[in-house]
């Protein structure tokens, strides 16, 4: 797990989606009971990831959006493509 990417994603989620920082762990379920995001929030996540890392997540499978950790993994795998 790349902590630097995780931290950047966390910061983006806190700033853009207004998720309280103390509620957000790297493994928190973003769309589940933990944070409770919905499909509209995913648009902001995709745009945020694209701005931060230049990685396009449009059309990416749902499981990649599960947590900060899975998002970071996706970014790591697709960076520089």
């Amino acid at each position: 797990m790349n902590t630097e990417i995780c931290e950047k994603i966390k910061k983006m989620l806190v700033e853009n989606l207004r998720i309280p920082e103390d509620e957000l762990e790297y493994t928190s379920e973003l769309f589940g009971d933990d944070i409770g995001l919905d499909s509209i929030d995913s648009i902001e996540i995709i745009a945020g990831i694209d701005s931060l890392f230049g990685v396009q997540m449009t059309g990416a499978a749902r499981e990649n959006f599960q947590s900060i950790e899975t998002l970071a993994k996706y970014v790591e795998e697709h960076q520089g493509e």
Partner: peptide, 15 residues
């Protein structure tokens, strides 16, 4: 805008 999947590209452009 791609309505078939979560599309962030349009959002970024619109922003």
């Amino acid at each position: 805008i791609n309505l078939d999947e979560a599309d962030g590209e349009w959002f970024k452009t619109a922003e």
